[in-house]
Computed example of a mutant assay.
Amino acid sequence: MKLSLPLYRQIQPSLYVPTNNYQLLRQPPPKDKVVVVLGATGTGKSRLSIDLATRFAAEVINSDKMQVYQGLDVATNKITDEERCGVPHHLLGIVDPESDFSASDFRAMASVSLKSILRRRHLPVVVGGSNSFVEALVDKSFRSRYDCCFLWVDVARPVLDSFVSDRVDRMVERGMVKEVRDFFKPNADYSKGIRRAIGVPEFDMFFRAESFCDEETQARNFADAIDKIKTNTSRLARRQLEKIHRLRNTKGWMMHRLDATDVFRKRGGEADAAWEDLVAGPGIAVVRRFIYNMEPVGCGGVTAVRDRASLMATASY
């Protein structure tokens, strides 16, 4: 059941400060609140966004630069209708696949979506792996209008590499090859639009040669394409992680790091339980604190959350 947010844009009381002239000093109006979910590909960002949106009155804004395009739902790993659980999603599968969609385009369209969500008194949750899009949105005057909470879903690299490799195999089982083949065009420009998505250029040689190669050569070309997809996906995850560290360490973005590594080491019900304990539960507690202006209490490298007298949650930065 979703939690309504009656205090979401609460008006803070005026502040009286005694002076010689008994002047009345007012606090600036409270900023609208925005949650941003960051993380490398495959870490579970979309899952966390749904966890948040089904507990708070929230809507999701996609910030993945490939998922913004129409088509190639499997290759770009778009969240499915079933996985969305009825949560409204913005900027997902709306752009012509042959066109270019820049960071400035994203900033303009995401800003419109943000205002629309806030008019409905819902919480905007920005989620996706394209950190350049998120940076373009949050930079400049954004912080003067919005109060941001950054959640970073992190997974140890060796564990994540193994997971994304297995995920590519599952994408193949779900029909990625046919999907990309139907989209294939000889001499296509792989530097623009959705053709930049991992999985599209890697299959180019396989599709070009499959009609005149023997089965052994076809099998070899197919295996090479899959290996390239896995390698390039791991490289993407590395670049995304480097960007997150830069945003945190160089630009000073305060991030709540949620370590999901143990989730990916487990299976079935144990993995679901670990997700609730390590990611969803702490993430929800952080957002609850953020929405209702609870005060954090610092304790070494850990931030405890105290709502007046009671300790609500703990999350590391």
Rank of each mutant, 00 (worst) to 15 (best):
L114W: 05
G39W: 15
L5Y: 03
I284K: 10
I244E: 06
A273E: 13
D307C: 07
D81M: 04
G281H: 13
P201H: 08
V87I: 14
K185W: 04
E179S: 13
A219T: 11
E59Q: 10
D51N: 07
C299G: 05
L91G: 09
T43H: 11
S104Y: 01
S104P: 06
F222T: 04
R235D: 11
S316K: 09
L114H: 09
A219S: 12
V279C: 07
T54D: 03
L48T: 02
L151G: 01
S141D: 10
D169A: 08
V112W: 01
N221H: 10
R246W: 13
Q23L: 11
N232E: 13
R288H: 11
T314C: 13
N62C: 09
G268F: 05
R9L: 05
R120A: 05
S144L: 07
T41E: 02
V279I: 15
W152E: 12
R55H: 14
R145H: 10
P88R: 10
S191P: 00
A309V: 05
T54L: 13
I284L: 15
A315P: 01
I79A: 05
A75L: 09
G129R: 09
E179G: 12
R84D: 00
L38A: 11
S46I: 11
A110S: 12
A273P: 00
K31H: 04
D154Q: 11
R170N: 03
V155M: 09
R145P: 00
E98D: 13
E295M: 09
D154T: 15
P97R: 08
P282H: 11
Y317G: 03
F142I: 01
A197F: 02
I229R: 09
G44Q: 12
D51L: 05
A285P: 00
D154Y: 15
L72C: 07
